[in-house]
Design a protein around this nucleic acid. Sequence first.
RNA 1: GGGGUCGUGGUGCAGCUUGGUUAGCACACUGGCCUGUCAAGCCAGAGGUCGCGGGUUCGAGUCCCGUCGGCCCCGCCA
Length: 590
Amino acid sequence: MAGLKRTHTCGELDASAVGNTVTLMGWVHRRRDHGGVVFIDLRDRYGVTQAVFKPENEELMEKARQLKQEFVVALTGTVEARPDDMINRDLKTGGIEVHVNTLRILNESRTPPFVIEDEAQALEDLRFKYRYLDLRNQVLKENIILRHRAMTAAREHLDSLDFLEIETPLLVKRTPEGARDFMVPSRLNPGKFYALPQSPQLYKQILMVSGFDRYFQLARCMRDEDLRADRQPEHTQIDLEMSFIAEEDVYAVVEGLMKHIWKKAIDVDVEIPFQRMTYAESMARYGTDKPDLRFALEIQEITDIVAASTSDMLKGAAAKGGAFAIGSVEGAALSRKNVDALEEAAKKLGAVGLARGKLAADGTSTGIFRFFDEESQAKLREMFGLDKDGLVLIVAGDRETSLKSLGAVRLKLAEMCKLVPEGKFRFVWITEFPLFEWDPALEAWTPAHHMFSMPLESDMDFLESDPGRVRARLYDLALNGVELGSGSIRNHVRSIQERVMKVIGLDEKEAERRFGFLLEAFGYGAPPHGGIALGMDRIAMVLAGKDNIRDFIAFPKTTSGASLMDDCPSAVDDRDLKDLYIKIDLPRKD
RNA sequence: GGGGUCGUGGUGCAGCUUGGUUAGCACACUGGCCUGUCAAGCCAGAGGUCGCGGGUUCGAGUCCCGUCGGCCCCGCCA
C-alpha cells in the first residue's frame, strides 16, 4: 500500500472510466453515513467525486466512519456507473461513483471554524483569518483560476505582439505626487527611505528612452490610501508602454488584448473596436467618467424647461448652473421609500435634493410637475421616451455636482428597476480628459491625471491663458461602469513640459528634485511614446460578473489594510528599529 | 479626516424599542439508529453571560459614555 499514487483528479471521471480501478486523493467534503452504506464526497481543486463504502468489508466501513470534514485521504476503488435515478446532474462527475476497496487517511483535520461550501455563510473577517480554508471553496477557487487564465492570456497576447515583459524595481524613489507611498527604511543608508511603487510609470517611460519600444509587465502597485470594496493597498496592473505611436495604436493593442482575454478566460467574443466617447460627453450623458452602457437612462439637460416652470425652488437652484433629469417608465412603479433612497444617493454626492414627479400618459402629473405647464410636460415625456406613465427625477444646481449626483441616481435606479442585463460587456474608451484640475484647498492647478501627459494640440494655446480648458491626450477604458485602466500619450517634449510645470507652479529646482532622473533621461533622445495600465484584479472581477475585488485576490487585506490571517501589519522589536535608527513617536490619546 | 452600520455558543442570526424567572432558532459538533444519499434523514446531547472598559439602576445582552474590530460610503486614490 505504500507508494499509493494518484491516478485521477476529483473532477475528471465520467462514464468512459467505468470499470477502471482508480486512486483519488483529496479532502473529505461531506460524509453521509446510512448505517449500511457510507458516502464520501471527495474534493480537490478540480471538483468533487462521490466515493461509496459498502458493508461487505467491515474493517473498511469502520475506517470510513472515522472520517470527518476536511480529513485528507487517499482511496482506491472501482469506477461504477450510477443507475439513472441516482445520477447527480449538478456534479460534473455525477454520472459515476467510486466503490472503494482501499482507504488511507493521509492527515486528520480539526473541525473547521466554518463549513466549506459554495455559498459561504461565515462573515468575511472570519473567512480572512482562515483564508486557506476559504480558498478550498470551489467558487473562490474558480475565481483564482479565472484570474490565472486571464493573466496567462495577457502574457500570451502581448508576447505575440513583440512586447517584452520587463521587471521594474519594487524599491524605488519616493515621488511626492499623487497617492501616498508605502515607505521602506534603508538600513544601509540611515535616515533614508525607499518607496514601494504606485506604478512602474517612470521606469517604463525610461525603458522607452532605452529603445524597448514595446514593454509590458504584470506589475504589483502599492498605494497607502484608504480602501474600498474595489480598492486594495496592493493591486496588479497589466502595464504597457509603446514608442512611435499615437492613441490609435494603444487602442488597437488593448482591444485585441481584451478580446483575447475574454475569449481565453470565459469564451466570450468581445466586439471590437470599442465605442469612444469624450470625457465631456460622458459627464453630460451619464454623470461619470466610467459610464455603465449596458442600459440607457441617459441624463438630459432641462435648464430651459425648468426656467419656464413656476417652481421658484428649482429655478433658483438651476440658476447656479443648470437643471438635469433622468426619466424612466420602470421607475414609475417604485415606492416612495425607494425614491427617497435615490435622493439619499444624490445628496451623498452633494446634491441639495432630488425633485421628483410622475408624468402620466394621459397628461396628468404629480409631484414637482404641478409647476410645469402642459407643453413642458409633453416635451419631457418626449425627451425621455415616456410612452407610458413615467418617473422623472431632477437635480438642479452647480453643473458638475448635479451631473455626478444624477449619475449615482442613474446607477441606483437601474439596479432597483433591474435594468442591468447580465453577461453583457460594454467597453468604452473615454477620451480628452482635462489636463488640469483646480484644487480649491491649494488654490492651484494640479495635474488631473499624470504630470507627463501630452496636451491636446488644439488646446496648446490655452496653457497659459485658460488652463482649465486644456484637454490632454488621456484615455480611460471603462467597462460596465468599472474603470479598467487609464493611460496617455506622454509629453516627451521639453519645452511643453516646462510650460505645464509652470501652470502647476512647479519650479525647475523642485522638478529636478522630484523627477530629475526622468527629465535627464528625456534629454537624451526620448521617442514619442504612450501607454496604459489596466487593473488586473478588476478585470478578473468583471469577467466573473462580481463586484467584490477581494474574492479575486488570494490573500487580500481588510478595509483597514490588515491581513487577518497573519496579523499584519505588526509591531517590530526595538532592536530592529535601532538598526534602522527609527523611533516610534505615537501621539498621545486623551 | 468625516459619516453610516454591525459585534450575542464553533458559524449565521433572533432577543435590545417598552431593563427583571433556566438568552431562543438554524447549521456545525458529540453519541445512537438507518443499505442509496448527494444541504441525507430521525432521536438524544454538549456548548454562550451577550467585543472590551466604565457608568446609570435593587437589577443590563437590553439604557448612557468611551474604546477596539469588521463592513459600506464621502474625502482621498495622478
